[in-house]
Design a binder for these strands. Structure first.
Lengths: 308, 308
DNA sequence: GTCGATACTTGCTAAAGTCAATTAATTGTT
DNA sequence: AACAATTAATTGACTTTAGCAAGTATCGAC
């Protein structure tokens, strides 16, 4: 069943399609002045990028009517852009290749297309260009069913990531549970302390990232020599549903074991169901629970432990 | 001059254009089975989304030949999809509107297009859909020449914004000046204190935002009853060059005046040329300067003051 | 060899789009 | 107010683009 959010996203995609249709139309305008139609240009492009392919291949790739394509190829042969030699293996097919003249024609089309795109990108600063291509790569990866989905990666924090943690925690818990700014302050305090008294041999932070965009985090910090604390576990909505929370916690546990801690503790709230489940699955057990009033809400705080 | 990186990005954009061309082609296939051509469908879409517009507007929007468009409209009128009534203000033009039948035709096209997009998105998890639409929004924002730089607005902070300040400061100063994480820690500390002991009557923070995306910030906090401190002024690269820094500082000064402070002080570094200029322009004067070693760098700290 | 499928070709046609000339109304100029 | 220039829309003549269907040669399986 579709919910309003789904509808919003569909509408957004359709708006983008309209936007990009006209954008591509603008870019194709150069072709109107060339002696080739859009289909012809696409055929030339395919020919330039495949050595000695058959008409069939091109037709399949560009989804062109075989009759229409046949005539296009015919015309190219007549104009001396394409050479056609019979394929010994199958004499119904021909091996098509661009001639020198054909490659020249391609080079011209290619240069025009290149320049058009370059012109479109010129007003953008380098950072903006990067964001543009990153966004395009994201779209391609998501919509290309053949391509593997972008895997989330866990990595060490980089400059700005601690701030990102504060931001995502502050925004998420305010949005989803109505917590007030004292929570964001608490998180800021935690990350400040982490940065200030960071002990690389016994403490660590991981950022989960998809397509170069952070979507989750967790921290393991020293309590005392025996006890580590797991803190600030969060996966943003965009990263949910692929086991990232589990991976982050698993990473913490593995690291804690390697460090020689005997126990991991953590403090969480009863209403955070998803997090609770992750802790449970990882072997944590609930050892204490008490109501408190914080972050503008009445909550039930819970302490969980995992013996290593 | 183009460097290899630029070329890579251009190639990436062109690859995306080819990819999305064929993707849009697939989506438009439904139209082949409808009684309307792509252009006709686009005209119907425009008519459905503008009340009583003229042929001229549509032609401009869709970049259609006036003769061709005239015939399309003619056909729609003949088929009873569109009503045409003369525009009193200019009798060369006509006001075009979809009739009930026309709206029905639109509804059908719209539904088909909607369903196609919905089908395309179905295999994606919710998080993936979010990333898809976010990526599309990024592309639109970057490429839309009409609103390339939407006007920046200054607003009060919202949940997550304090974290954003930490993130942007941490990332910017690391990238641009090589400052280490102790700086990000300092910022986290400052925002934590701000949130914890915030005095709404005498303290304030502003976020500069373009298109809903934060690009800058500043804070005015209480030193003592007479002296306010200006802190954490920053405009991200994407927001620079439009006087946002000046606006943020001006906002602080106005607020400080209204609060009855006698003086604003601030601490900055000699290497931050852009910020220095902003303070100078606003009337601040340099009152002290001393070298120090912080954030992994050798810096010259400066204290500036503005008497109110 | 026969049969069905495949790779293309050819003839025919319709749809889609362009161009130039025309009309009618509006705007700007002196 | 008269006149030229411009604009919105229309019309006729035309080309290009595209798609279908029937036809030909070849291939692969039995």
């Amino acid at each position: 069943m579709l919910v309003p959010d789904d509808e919003d996203r569909i509408a957004a995609v359709r708006a983008f399609n309209r936007f990009y249709t006209s954008r591509l139309g603008v870019l194709d305008q150069h072709l109107l002045k060339s002696p080739y139609s859009l289909s012809e240009a696409r055929v030339i492009y395919e020919l330039a990028n495949r050595e000695g392919c058959s008409a069939k291949e091109i037709g399949a790739e560009l989804d062109l009517d075989p009759g229409y394509l046949s005539r296009i190829v015919q015309k190219f042969v007549d104009d001396g852009l394409v050479s056609r030699k019979p394929l010994p293996a199958d004499r119904r097919q021909h091996q098509l290749n661009l001639t020198a003249k054909g490659r020249q024609a391609f080079a011209k089309l290619d240069r025009n297309s290149h320049d058009d795109v370059a012109k479109m990108m010129r007003p953008l600063a380098e950072g903006e260009q990067r964001r543009l291509t990153a966004a395009m790569a994201t779209i391609e990866r998501l919509l290309e069913p053949a391509a593997p989905r972008a895997a989330a990666v866990l990595r060490e924090p980089r400059p700005g990531d601690m701030g990102w943690i504060v931001q995502s925690q502050g925004a998420c818990y305010a949005r989803e549970y109505g917590w007030d700014s004292s929570f964001e302050a608490l998180v800021a305090d935690i990350v400040a302390k982490f940065l200030n008294s960071f002990d690389a041999s016994r403490e660590r932070c991981w950022i989960a990232e998809i397509d170069g965009v952070p979507v989750g985090s967790v921290m393991l910090v020293r309590g005392d020599d025996e006890v580590a604390k797991l803190r600030l576990l969060l996966v943003e909505p965009t990263g949910r549903g692929q086991g990232l929370g589990h991976r982050l916690v698993a990473e913490c546990i593995a690291f804690a074991r390697a460090c020689g801690y005997r126990k991991i503790t953590l403090w969480t709230q009863s209403i955070l169901i998803a997090a609770r489940k992750i802790y449970q699955d990882a072997g944590f057990v609930l050892v204490a629970s008490e109501p408190h009033r914080s972050f503008g809400q009445s909550l039930i705080g819970e302490t969980w432990e995992l013996k290593l």
